[in-house]
């Protein structure tokens, strides 16, 4: 048995555990990339991160807001798509393939595409707005419009992921309750609310927890679309850690920020999982 799991365990140890230990070690040291003295500084970096108003006052709230918006919208659209694709219609396989396309696009490419779509001078979005007589918008010049573009890019990328998993969940549901509901002349909304959604909840819980943890560490979309701007207003936790470690070259403080963020997401993930799990239990 040990021999069977050894390759996976060694790989995990080398590529996950060791880097985390190295990062954790760096977070307690004076470790700039250009002059790594590596002298022990204790909790200095952690105190700097925790007391920095930009971390708990800006980066973490932005990240949580992004997480809630992106996950809930992706879930809603993904569920809608899954319900549509669960029906038989001509060209179903073609539509399924098209729906899956965003999953094949790298987040960086999608984000560059989104940035140009929302470019105030050349972007297709403003062309459409002007076409219908509305004024063009400087989408990336303001906090909330920029945040909207970032969330939109993420929703576009992740909706198919929800759709695929929820479609698999839908197709594994037993047919009998739906047949009974049909005999009782239950309407589509009643069937969805009283049968589909409760039976699909375990799948939804797993999807939401996995996706939330992933959304917390979002980087590519924010970096490409706004770089955390204008004036840090869309800065997320991962951008904060990256800027500290690789732009300011302070590897120690960047590592500390990453570990504090890691702790936040562990707590957030546990709370979320318990809440959603309780919702599933209640619905049984």
């Amino acid at each position: 048995m040990l021999a069977l799991i050894a390759p996976a365990a060694v790989t995990m140890a080398l590529f996950q555990v060791v880097p985390i230990i190295l990062g954790a070690n760096a977070s307690f040291r004076d470790w700039t990339l250009y002059d790594p003295k590596k002298t022990w500084v204790g909790l200095k970096h952690y105190i700097e991160v925790i007391t920095d108003p930009a971390f708990f006052g800006l980066a973490i709230p932005n990240t949580l807001l992004f997480l809630v918006l992106s996950v809930s919208l992706s879930l809603t659209f993904g569920l809608g798509l899954a319900l549509l694709l669960n029906r038989s219609f001509v060209g179903q396989s073609v539509v399924r393939t098209i729906v899956l396309l965003p999953l094949m696009v790298a987040p960086v490419i999608a984000s560059i595409m989104m940035r140009w779509m929302f470019n105030d001078q050349f972007g297709i979005v403003n062309v459409v707005l002007e076409g219908v007589g509305l004024p063009p918008v400087a989408w990336l010049a303001y906090r909330w419009t920029t945040m909207m573009v970032i969330v939109l890019a993420d929703v576009w990328l992740w909706t198919p992921w929800f759709a695929v998993l929820l479609l698999a969940g839908l197709q594994s549901l037993p047919k009998e309750p739906f047949e009974a509901a049909a005999i009782d002349a239950a309407g589509p909304w009643r069937v969805f609310r009283s049968l589909t959604l409760p039976m699909l909840r375990p799948v939804i819980v797993v999807c939401v927890v996995i996706r939330s943890i992933d959304a917390f560490r979002v980087f590519d979309q924010v970096w490409v679309i706004s770089g955390g701007g204008p004036a840090r207003t869309t800065e997320m936790f991962s951008i904060y850690a990256y800027v500290e470690a690789f732009q300011r070259m302070n590897f120690g403080k960047g590592s500390a920020a990453a570990l504090v963020g890691g702790a936040v997401i562990v707590v957030f993930g546990l709370v979320l999982y318990r809440l959603l799990n309780r919702a599933v239990e209640v619905s049984k």
Binding site: N119, D120, Q121, F122, A138, W139, L140, A141, T146, P230
Partner: peptide, 21 residues
Amino acid sequence: SPPAMISYTRNDANAIFQAGD
């Protein structure tokens, strides 16, 4: 200057100049 200039990288600005705008 364009209202979104606040968010422009050099590539954005150069593209506008090269487009003759």
